[in-house]
Amino acid sequence: MPVGGNSSVFQKGVSEKLHLINAVCMKFILFSLFFFLNIGFVYGQFSDSLTHRVRLSTSGTFNKTSEGMTYLLNNSGNFSVKKKRFVMNTNAAWLYGGTLETMTNNDVNASVDFNVYNKKVPDFYYWGLVNFTSSFSLKINEQVQSGLGLAYRIVNKENLMFSVSDGILYERSNIIQPDSAEFGYQTVRNSLRLQLNWKHKDFITLTGSGFWQPSLTYRNDHIVTTNLNVGFKVWRWVTLNTALNYNLISRTEKENFILTYGIVFERFF
């Protein structure tokens, strides 16, 4: 078959894949709208009467020029429960992107984390985490982390919170090394995190966090993760959001820098 014919078949296949991705995202948005329209208009933040939160977001970027098209789609969901001295969060996210010729991102992350607060010192708390990651862009086939630690809220005001935490993680990973060989290993990491939350009159919100996770058993093995989100509430439970994420995996010598913008649906009950 002529080369042009192969190219045509390939582009048709990619086009069909893009249509499928767009259809999935559209169903996600429609489901989110249906869900929120049917559960009411309660909104705000955690309180004595509002102890549960559902947060759904869809975002992405598209860039089409005469030389081709690039796209990035990012969908995520979060469910949180807060009691007097206990908070639990479950999170799931899927990032997919590329060009008409190649796939650049197919990254999945799921986690469960909890905080247990000290009654005598409310700004001091314990945390626990179980996290799963699979990332095409960072060359991680699978990574499972679990651990415990301590945290302290240095600033804890109604519109501003800044905290620092530290702990120990056990990790089991299967990665693709720079020489393209698969490598499975286990390690123990220290996990240092800085976290910031700021809001202005429930209209503008800024949240950010940064992780540094060096291995305690392997030299030159560390993970850096940072994220920053800026949101503008446009109507009760609807927020326009811009997210900036950076990830570095020294073991695979891979990093990514991701900027997306989209919409967030958030409901307290």
Rank of each mutant, 00 (worst) to 15 (best):
S250T: 15
K84F: 04
W212R: 03
I168G: 05
S215R: 05
L72Y: 06
R267Y: 11
G98P: 11
K84G: 04
R236I: 04
L56C: 04
Q177W: 00
D166T: 10
S173A: 14
K119S: 13
Y96W: 08
V112D: 01
V121N: 05
I176V: 15
S209R: 07
T70Y: 05
L56T: 00
S163R: 04
M88R: 06
K17N: 12
L259E: 07
K82M: 14
A243M: 09
G5F: 05
Y43P: 01
S209H: 11
L72V: 08
M1D: 09
N156F: 03
V14M: 15
I263T: 15
S134M: 10
S180M: 10
N227Q: 12
G262P: 05
T226F: 04
L169H: 01
V24N: 07
Y43L: 02
I263L: 14
S180D: 15
N105R: 09
V108P: 01
V116L: 10
F268R: 00
G97D: 09
D123W: 01
A92W: 03
F232L: 15
F31L: 13
V234K: 01
F269K: 01
L18V: 10
T239C: 05
V87K: 11
G149I: 01
F41G: 08
P214H: 00
H222K: 08
F269T: 01
F132Q: 12
K64L: 06
T65I: 06
F132V: 12
F28L: 04
I204H: 11
Y185S: 11
A181R: 10
F10G: 01
L194W: 06
F28A: 10
K157V: 00
S173W: 00
Y170V: 07
S146H: 09
L129C: 08
T226H: 01
L216Q: 08
D179T: 11
L150G: 04
N6Q: 07
N74I: 00
S59T: 03
N247C: 03
G4N: 12
F162K: 03
K201D: 15
T61K: 06
N131G: 07
